[in-house]
């Protein structure tokens, strides 16, 4: 958690889109930016890139004000996927409240997915977080491509972990909102369990999700 000021009734949460290079983390954020209403969010900030590769991070902020006056700001980050940017990844991962792991569905990407997942586990523990406890959602992206690993195979491989696994095509725009909703719901539950958002600050989960996930009219 970035910030929690009980007196000011203000909380700043952090979600991180993690995963191997070129798996579509920034495209996820771009799609969220395009599909969700401007009402509940700020502008997407894309930091400088080289050849369309994220080298720092991207940031998409969301706001929510509960009827009780409790303000929740949500900052959604992506990390650079390339191996060489590990220091940046570690820095961005600090104080995360929830993580989406964006995997590449292509057959050739499987070993890189596992490497990246190992890296996530290592970096989480290095910033004092535990992969066992942090809300974590797996997204298998690029389902629109042809040379991809079958869904049953993915489910049988990841099923034993008990983690929610979602299929998506960020480029085509499907599965992205579902992934975001999943991680948002789980993150809310985790924060609620710790800080009693509903009972002490009158924040309703359904209202929180609905407000942030308001789909833009012109899509």
């Amino acid at each position: 958690m970035i910030e929690f000021d009980e007196q000011q009734k203000r909380m700043v949460l952090k979600l991180v889109y993690y995963g191997p290079a070129m798996s579509g983390k920034t495209t996820n954020l771009l799609t969220l930016h395009d599909q969700l209403s401007l009402q509940g969010r700020g502008e997407l900030m894309l930091l400088d890139t080289t050849e369309d590769r994220t080298i720092y991070f991207d940031l998409l902020p969301f706001f929510y004000v509960a009827p009780s006056g409790m303000k929740i700001k949500l900052k959604v980050y992506t990390v650079p996927g390339q191996v060489r940017h590990d220091a940046t990844r570690k820095a961005v991962l600090q104080r995360a409240d929830g993580v989406v792991f964006v995997a590449d569905s292509q057959t050739a990407g499987m070993s890189i997915n596992f490497e990246s997942f190992d890296n996530l586990e290592k970096n989480l523990s290095m910033v004092g977080l535990s992969i066992e406890h942090i809300p974590l959602v797996i997204q298998f992206n690029k389902r629109d491509l042809t040379d991809i690993v079958a869904e049953e195979q993915i489910r049988s491989a990841w099923g034993p972990t008990g983690l929610p696994v979602l299929m998506a095509s960020a480029l085509k725009g499907w599965g992205v909102l579902e992934t975001f909703k999943e991680v948002l719901g789980r993150t809310f539950d985790a924060v609620n369990a710790r800080h009693a958002l509903t009972s002490r600050f009158g924040v309703d989960k359904e209202d929180f999700l609905t407000t942030i996930l308001t789909v833009a009219d012109d899509v």
């Binding site: 970035i2 910030e3 700043v12 952090k14 991070f57 700001k73 900052k75 980050y77 820095a91 961005v92 600090q94 104080r95």
Partner: peptide
């Protein structure tokens, strides 16, 4: 020096 990345307002 890393408070921005962490997300400090």
């Amino acid at each position: 020096h890393i408070e921005f990345i962490i997300g400090t307002e």
